[in-house]
Design a protein around this nucleic acid. Structure first.
Length: 260
DNA sequence: ATGGCGTACACCGTACGA
């Protein structure tokens, strides 16, 4: 079974790339972030045609998350919960569902803009509420949890192209990294770091300043899996190919392979 | 050098992202 996450930065613009990517990589579960679509505009029919059942939560212009399930293998996302019961949030950043024997949590963490800003405070509170909720529900979870998404946190300096330039900055601050560690401490592992990886592996590159060509990126998109099923993770990698296309998302997909 | 690029919505600029 393959599970994946991709911040598409507008599903309206990126739909052809998502369909092409799914045709080439028929993952069983795909979590999307920044769909930027009202629910009535979500491309349910096009994805059904491609063999995927969907659960989604959107709003105009900003945010928006979705979980896609391959009909032939895992089918429809079940027991869908939109948002976090511990945190009243007008922004659509969180959706979870039971699928493929996992409790899949698809998350678009707030960006935070700048350390110390109001948006940074919102980011920290949002993450604290996520930790509180997962901490509570993990005990009662009917299935192992997999948390996939755009965390907007580079957990370590090796996840940053220029750690000195980024030291203490947004995505790299101690407060954010401490919260990433607290998520892991709930009993999850970073699937990507279960394996030896090449150096300088990133999942996001700035559109500006030739970020991708210079590999000036950050690894901020992650797949955390329940530590109890860490042994089932066979592989985890970032697929840079879609970032090379015309009109790409600024993020690349991350894929993990699990044994059944 | 705080720029740069891309998206959305609405208007021909502004907000936001990371």
């Amino acid at each position: 079974m393959h599970i994946a996450t991709w911040n598409v930065n507008s599903l309206k613009v990126r739909l052809p790339q998502v369909l092409d990517w799914l045709a080439a990589h028929p993952v069983d579960v795909l979590c999307l972030q920044e769909t930027k679509l009202r629910d009535e505009h979500f491309p349910v029919a096009a994805l059904a045609e491609a063999g995927y059942e969907v659960a989604f939560a959107g709003q105009p212009t900003y945010n928006g998350v979705a979980i896609l399930g391959r009909r032939a293998t895992v089918g429809m996302p079940a027991d869908v919960i939109v948002g976090n019961p511990h945190f009243d949030d007008p922004q659509q950043r969180l959706i979870s569902a039971t699928i493929g024997g996992l409790r899949v949590v698809c998350a678009y963490f707030p960006n935070g803009q700048a350390v110390g800003s109001e948006k940074f405070d919102y980011k920290l509170r949002w993450i604290d509420a996520l930790i509180a909720w997962l901490g509570d529900s993990a005990a009662a979870a009917p299935a192992p949890i997999a948390l996939l998404g755009d965390f907007n946190i580079a957990p370590e300096d090796r996840d940053v192209h220029d750690p000195e330039k980024w030291a203490g900055q947004i995505h790299c601050s101690d407060e954010e990294r401490a919260r990433f560690s607290r998520l892991v401490a709930l009993g999850m592992v970073d699937a990507f770091r279960l394996f030896e990886q090449p150096e300088k592996q990133f999942s996001w590159w700035d559109y500006r300043m030739l970020g991708f060509r210079r590999n000036a990126g950050l690894r901020i998109d992650h797949i955390l899996v329940d530590a109890r099923i860490a042994g089932r993770v066979e592989a985890c990698r970032i697929d840079r190919e879609p970032r090379k296309l015309d009109k790409p998302s600024d993020h690349a997909p991350v894929i993990a392979e699990l044994t059944p």
